[in-house]
Amino acid sequence: MKKKQKSVSYAKWGYIFIAPFFITFFIFSCIPLVDTIRNSFYEYYNSGLKVIGPNWVGFQNYLALAASDLPKYMWNTFVMWILGFVPQIVVALVLAAWFTDERMRIHGRQFFKVVIYLPNLIMASAFAMLFFTLFSNGGPVNSILVNAGIVSEPIRFFETTFGTRAIVALMNFMMWFGNTTIMLMAAIAGINPSLFEAAQLDGCTHSQMFFKITLPLIKPILSYTMITSLIGGLQMFDVPQILTNGQGGPNRTTMTLIMLLNSHLKSKNYGMAGALSVYLFIISGILCFFVYRMMMDDGSKPKKAKKGAKA
């Protein structure tokens, strides 16, 4: 990986150069992590103006969370993630295959790439605010649907579980399918073209080539995309928070894990926030391990950073 170099006398510079990173990480991540874990074992919250605790309660916070909130909000998060991820990966695969197919003449290739990536850069909170106004009962979407005669009266998107979840999923899809397309394009472009040429000589159809060559060869990138998207999905917050004004409505069916963490932090329930953080830490730790394995895996395929395929 690194070239051999005899510079023993320079070793201290290595430490000096990496010191800011590690000092910052230690202060702003390690200390908070330890403090978070410590808090998770205490009963420590605000009740009105009174502060309860901190009293040592062992694993009580963990048990309380696992009994009710955790499975429920994990399920919400998962449902909204999968509703967005499935179309995201399917559309991205198809688009990437088209964009990289040299025999296909797609006009305005660059224009399409630019446009489909655009939503990824939009401020998620403003995007959510926009969707809230657009899909509200008297908003433009309903006004268009009613005027076109598709529905007789406005659809109350935010009063149904499916409506709200679907809008969250739609936004996640829009924000991430362009990103995934571009990453998969890079992966497909890395496949040896002679494989396609040989397949073509043997009379393979487009779909045969896609399923028998492209798909198996980009499997590592696909699993990478899925894991990083899962990590992103786990962090889902901005969009449902703003769409539902932090309530996770209707009836807390769109409340995500981070929204729950946010509400515990806002109300200064340190015990519960701590226990929830530790659960999240464990889940993301497992996912991080997979990413680590994939990145350090010294395979033949180019392993560039393919980060951020979120939700």
Partner: peptide
Amino acid sequence: MAILVMPTQVTALG
């Protein structure tokens, strides 16, 4: 590399 994709939210409390 091990902390490459670790979410910052998990340490938000601390």
